[in-house]
């Protein structure tokens, strides 16, 4: 029991942040927590309310946080090409579904095929990053800078710079609602992803190996682990996460805009990892904390929209809150706090 509590200590910071945001909203306007059952324009039941919105729109970020945590842990660096890769994935999905006609009456291929092609493409781009990082020893941020710069142009090129629009309603299910089910589909997709990664971490050595590579590459090699392979794999896994997030993104609007889709999402994903109290220099990680970190960011965004913060000041507000959270979740500060608390407790006992 005791050891379990220690394990969860890292969860404390994102949990505290969520509680703080929740209390703030409770004081400002209790109706924040209201959830209502209504119908959408197609006549299907849907749940709506701020909490549902947070769960819904936080999905992509939570999924990306999974991959980003692994990459961070293994390589001690971050992938900044995530947003651009989402643009590529979205473009590939639409290209497969639409064929050469940018506004097809019927889908040219089943959605599952489009998604599988997108998975392969995303994993290839992940592998490209992974090879640069693992085998050429290039700094992750520099290696992924290549796709960060070129990705959106590649995405535009895949569709000949046209903007395909899909009219088929079933394509909208992934980012919207499956008829008859009132909870947004992205929530289910995220739950599946989280369950899968938790099972993988529990029943395989992936988690252990990534951490050991991140903590000390040389000694893990001496212990029979292939650090290059592990690093490479984390980038491929992130590629898979990008494919899932990309599907949700394009499905939300049934179209794509290459220059703005998932813009700056890589920064939010890195932030989610940091908010989870994970060291950005690699090593030990806590997956659940990262995922919670992603929802903290979405909670914050939704709160700011609700408070109707002035447009010019929006990013400044976000920055202030983020600085506080990041400082609090930094390992050094946490250690200091822990020591402080211990002292405090001792005094109390005395």
């Amino acid at each position: 029991m005791k050891s379990k509590f220690v394990f969860n200590k890292q969860l404390l910071i994102p949990l505290a942040a969520i509680v703080a945001l929740a209390i703030f909203n409770l004081i400002m306007d209790p109706s924040f927590f209201k959830i209502t059952l209504g119908t959408n324009s197609a006549g299907h039941p849907v749940l709506s309310g701020y909490l549902i919105t947070i769960l819904d729109y936080g999905s992509e970020l939570a999924i990306l946080a999974i991959g980003m945590t692994l990459v961070t842990a293994a390589s001690g660096g971050q992938d900044i090409s995530v947003g651009a890769n989402i643009a590529i994935v979205g473009s590939v999905i639409l290209r497969v579904l639409c064929g050469t006609n940018s506004r097809p009456e019927t889908l040219q291929a089943p959605i599952i095929v489009a998604f599988l092609v997108a998975c392969v493409v995303a994993m290839l781009f992940g592998a490209f990053n992974g090879i640069l990082v693992a085998y050429f020893n290039i700094q992750p941020m520099v290696a992924t800078l290549i796709l960060f710069t070129a990705g959106r142009s590649i995405a535009a090129w895949i569709n000949n710079n046209e903007l395909p629009i899909i009219n088929e309603p079933s394509f909208g299910y992934f980012g919207g609602y499956i008829p008859g089910i009132a909870i947004p589909t992205p929530v289910f997709i995220t739950i599946i992803c989280v369950i899968v990664i938790m099972l993988v971490l529990k029943f395989t050595t992936l988690g252990l190996y990534t951490q050991s590579v991140g903590i000390n590459e040389k000694s893990s090699r001496l212990n029979g682990i292939n650090p290059q392979m592990i690093k490479f794999m984390t980038f491929v896994i992130l590629g898979l996460c990008v494919a899932v997030a990309g599907l949700i993104k394009v499905s939300r609007l049934s179209t794509i805009n290459y220059s703005v889709i998932a813009k700056d999402i890589e920064m939010d994903a890195i932030l989610a990892v940091a908010l989870g109290g994970n060291a950005l220099s690699g090593g030990k990680f806590n997956m659940a904390a990262s995922i919670l970190g992603a929802y903290v960011i979405q909670f914050l965004t939704t709160t700011l929209y609700k408070m109707q913060v002035n447009s010019e000041a929006l990013s400044a507000y976000k920055a202030v809150v983020v600085i506080i959270l990041v400082v609090l979740s930094a390992p050094i500060v946490r250690d200091k706090l822990k020591k402080f608390m211990e002292k405090f407790k001792k005094k109390e006992v005395a």
Binding site: S48, G49, Y50, T53, Y57, K249, R252, L253, T255, N257, V260, I261, A262, K263, T301, T302, Y305, K306, Q308, V309, S311, L314
Partner: peptide
């Protein structure tokens, strides 16, 4: 509110007003 030309952000802002 600024949605920075992005459809997704606009969707969230309008959703927030509806909520």
């Amino acid at each position: 509110q600024t949605a920075e030309w992005s459809a997704e952000k606009a969707q969230q802002i309008v959703q927030s007003v509806i909520d």
